[in-house]
Amino acid sequence: MSKNPLRNVAYDYLYNSIVTSKLLPGQPIVEQEISDMLGISRTPVREALKQLTAEWLVKYIPGRGTFVEEIYKSDVEEIFELREMFEDAALKSAIYEITDEEIDKMMQNLESLNCKKSSEEFYNCDRALHNLIMKYGHNRRMLYFYNSTTSQLERLRRVSAMTPNRLQASTKEHLEILSAIKERNLYKATEKLNIHLNNVKKSIFSICEQMNLNYKGMI
């Protein structure tokens, strides 16, 4: 992230608006409107948009302007294909290196989640588990490419959560993954991980199809 504070203000506002669907897929983004609302010049807004374009959250169409990137089925397929490939590979070493203490703490955090807690707490737990697996993969290049999808994953994580009871189901799936890791059962942990990723992917497709006017890239 840039050390330019105004650019960061613009980036944070736009990033959060996109991943939380306050700005919907296909919605135009007008530099002047954003700069007026934030009380800053257009330059940091333009810089923030360049970064978001690199992260595949916005797109610039010559002669038309800048828009929130749509969610295409092919993009979701590609992202989850990469996730499965990277996380399965990382799990081969992570399953023997993640400590019982780390597992117990993560399971405790997951078990403490309930309907009264914010969805952000769930997102934090979800992110922590998958990042922990990747951390113990000990492959810097794989981690680099995995991290390049972070912004898109944050957006899709929240789309998936729109599915009724998806947060509760994901919490159960996470606990099953952690239990298998604690048993040091690679086959079982890989199976549970892939079932979880496939369920999340299916929930994203379901929500996008229901919202096809806003997620028209899914049609």
Rank of each mutant, 00 (worst) to 15 (best):
Q32W: 01
L110C: 12
I29V: 11
F122V: 09
K105G: 15
K73F: 01
P28K: 08
A94W: 09
V30H: 07
F86R: 07
Q51P: 01
T53W: 02
L57N: 08
I95Q: 03
K50M: 09
K73G: 08
L52A: 02
K92W: 04
E70Y: 04
V68K: 06
Q108M: 15
Y72E: 11
V68W: 03
V68A: 07
I103K: 05
A94V: 08
D88I: 13
E101P: 02
R42Y: 01
L49S: 03
P62W: 01
M107N: 15
S74T: 14
L57W: 08
T66C: 10
I40L: 11
E87K: 11
R83Y: 10
K50G: 07
C115D: 12
T66F: 07
C115P: 02
I103D: 03
T99A: 05
C115R: 15
E55T: 05
I79E: 01
F67T: 00
E111H: 10
I98P: 00
L91A: 06
S119F: 12
E120K: 13
G63Y: 05
F86M: 10
E102G: 09
I98D: 02
A48T: 06
E77D: 15
E120P: 07
R42G: 01
L91E: 07
Y72V: 01
K105Q: 14
Y60N: 12
S35Q: 07
M85Q: 12
Q108D: 13
E81N: 12
E33M: 08
Q27L: 05
L91I: 08
S74K: 15
V58A: 01
L57G: 05
D36V: 02
A54D: 01
V45P: 05
D36I: 00
A94P: 02
L38E: 02
P44F: 03
R42A: 00
L91R: 07
I29W: 05
Y60C: 10
W56N: 13
L49W: 00
E111P: 07
